[in-house]
Design a protein around this nucleic acid. Structure first.
Lengths: 206, 206
DNA sequence: AAAATAAGATACGCGATAGTATCTACGGGT
DNA sequence: ACCCGTAGATACTATCGCGTATCTTATTTT
């Protein structure tokens, strides 16, 4: 930290400020360079600190990785727009936006980590957060049933979760965001028909 | 090759025999250890040869990678059972079997290669093989139309390719084979209804 | 049989990274 | 002001893999 020093500007970080700076840098490195670029050398340089500082807190690479993931893990907001179609579109657009998308694509970034440790993404997820209670799309369908928009019948998880699966699939295939018209297509041409709905019976046009 | 030598047993490999042994070893290494384990050191040892032998043929790692992929790339057999449902189930089971599955999961194994080179799986695929003409499921649907099983109307690619997308998605999620009942579910509960068919109107039970 | 080719073996220098040791000096607590 | 903890800087050893040089020797060619 060869920083120009003024009487009131601290030149060293401590405690949470330091740890947050490190895990923020670690996250950037992970996203840009993947697991194999996630090295103490690179992260220390990115965070403007030195390797012993990292080792003092996280003696193993995995410790730092888990800390970094825990800091960046976010629950998904479940929209409640009053209509099933709009809920679905909003949720998928949220999933498609950068923050959530990066977490989805992490599955690929961490392939080598999973291979090394014999663990899985799902195992990691339950480690970072308690099991997500109800899958997001199941929540949307439940609400539509409550509103009387959908009949109260049993539906397979496969059908309920289909939009999320398809968007995730396309993201994994392209390693990038999905075009918005793809999202609209998945909801209107695939999912709503499978639920026995047409796109315009669920709510007025957006 | 410190091999016990008999008068008629050659101790050294040459030409295609040697190259095939190397690319076979390279493939095993790629599948087991991913792109980052794909090193000349490891492959030479696995093939029972020395690094200069590899460098003489493939001066760059990418050369050896492409040669290895070219040797193991296989076109997908399109089944023709006389019924759409059976065609679909057969095709998905083929996709789910080890050989084709490994190629699908290669997308993940090669994530670091794509990042390094700024290229993509689709680019790689068209490099290894001319563009596959008709997507497999489009072929199945075409045949069903010819047989009169399906109406001759326009269908979105999204719907036509849905089974393959969902199976691929589940494979990518689990990095493993998909249970057979998943395949049956995708075809019977999702795809055929979207095509306006019920599972048993396409053919007698399997 | 002799010559040519290249497979196989091995050694080397270099760069990157892990992990650790050591030192200086900032900054908080007393 | 003094003491202590530790941030930041730097150096070191060990390991791994890349890429190359050199040598021996099996095998094909002449």
């Amino acid at each position: 930290m060869s920083q120009q020093r003024t009487p009131t500007t601290p030149t060293r970080r401590r405690g949470a400020a330091l740890e947050n700076a490190i895990t923020d840098a670690a996250w950037e490195v992970l996203v840009e360079q993947g697991y194999n670029g996630f090295t103490f050398e690179t992260i220390a340089a990115r965070a403007g600190t030195s390797k012993p500082v990292l080792y003092r807190r996280w003696p193993q690479r995995e410790d730092l990785l888990l800390a970094t993931l825990a800091r960046n893990w976010r629950p998904l907001n479940i929209p409640n727009t009053g209509g099933l179609r709009q809920d679905a579109l909003t949720l998928l657009r949220t999933v498609n936006a950068e923050r959530a998308r990066t977490l989805i694509l992490l599955r690929i970034q961490l392939a080598d980590y999973f291979r090394e440790t014999g663990t899985t993404f799902n195992h990691l997820r339950s480690h970072l957060r308690p099991a997500d209670q109800t899958p997001p799309f199941a929540r949307l369908v439940d609400r539509a049933v409550e509103r009387g928009e959908l009949a109260d019948i049993r539906r397979s998880e496969r059908v309920v979760n289909l939009p999320f699966d398809l968007v995730r699939h396309d993201m994994l295939m392209s390693m990038d965001a999905v075009p918005d018209e793809t999202i609209v297509e998945i909801v209107d041409a695939v999912w709503l028909p499978l639920l026995g709905l047409s796109p315009h019976s669920t709510q007025t046009r957006r």
